[in-house]
């Protein structure tokens, strides 16, 4: 790691900067520790496992999404329902036992305040979800699965995110 990189990663955020980073976002990094960048490869390994599950679970399939919204198959409801149940029990265990991360840091949870984005934004995403047959995770998995044209969908999603950021202040929240 070069010296400039080290300084950049050790930039201490102001409260305002932290709030901006957390804005309209659930999946955030709450850790206060500073590690070399290559420590992040452990998340690549988790991602690899996850990518395998995505494909084997067939939830990256456009067909499965159509089934779900046509109510012709229980499959997707089974996958998501089980995932939520397992996730909820896990979170409960982590909270009750006050588990710490492997670096000894407390695991923290933040409550997210409701805003109108969870209605309007969610409807817009739901509409796109059924058209593309994929939420963001499966989009990346479709690409890895060899459906190279999905790169266009991903670039469009990045463009959509950018446009949202640009006009965020003018949208009802």
């Amino acid at each position: 790691m070069t010296e400039t990189e080290l300084i950049e990663t050790e930039h201490i955020e102001t409260k305002e900067e932290i709030e901006l980073r957390h804005l309209d976002t659930l999946c955030t990094n709450e850790s206060q520790l500073v590690h070399p960048w290559w420590y992040n490869f452990k998340y690549t390994i988790v991602g690899i496992i996850f990518g395998i599950v995505f494909v084997k679970a067939e939830i990256i399939s456009w067909f499965r999404i159509q089934e779900m919204f046509q109510l012709t198959s229980f499959f997707m409801y089974g996958v998501i329902g089980t995932a939520v149940a397992v996730g909820a029990v896990s979170v409960l265990i982590v909270k009750k036992l006050k588990l710490k991360s492997i670096y000894g840091e407390d695991i923290t949870f933040e409550d997210k305040k409701f805003n109108k984005g969870q209605i309007f934004g969610a409807m817009i995403f739901g509409t796109g979800w059924a058209i593309t047959g994929a939420c963001p995770g499966p989009l990346f998995a479709q690409l890895g699965s060899g459906y190279s044209v999905i790169i266009i969908t991903i670039l469009s999603a990045i463009a959509g995110t950018w446009v949202y950021g640009k006009f965020r202040d003018r949208l009802p929240h």
Binding site: L26, I80, G121, F125, G126, G128
Partner: peptide, 28 residues
């Protein structure tokens, strides 16, 4: 591809998360 992807990107950020963030992490 183009409109569908745009709706996914715009909608998820406006909603503050996607199926992973809201429906799995958030519900959990």
């Amino acid at each position: 591809f183009v409109i569908g992807g745009f709706l996914v990107g715009f909608g998820t950020r406006y909603a503050g998360g996607c199926t992973s963030g809201h429906s799995i992490m958030g519900l959990a």
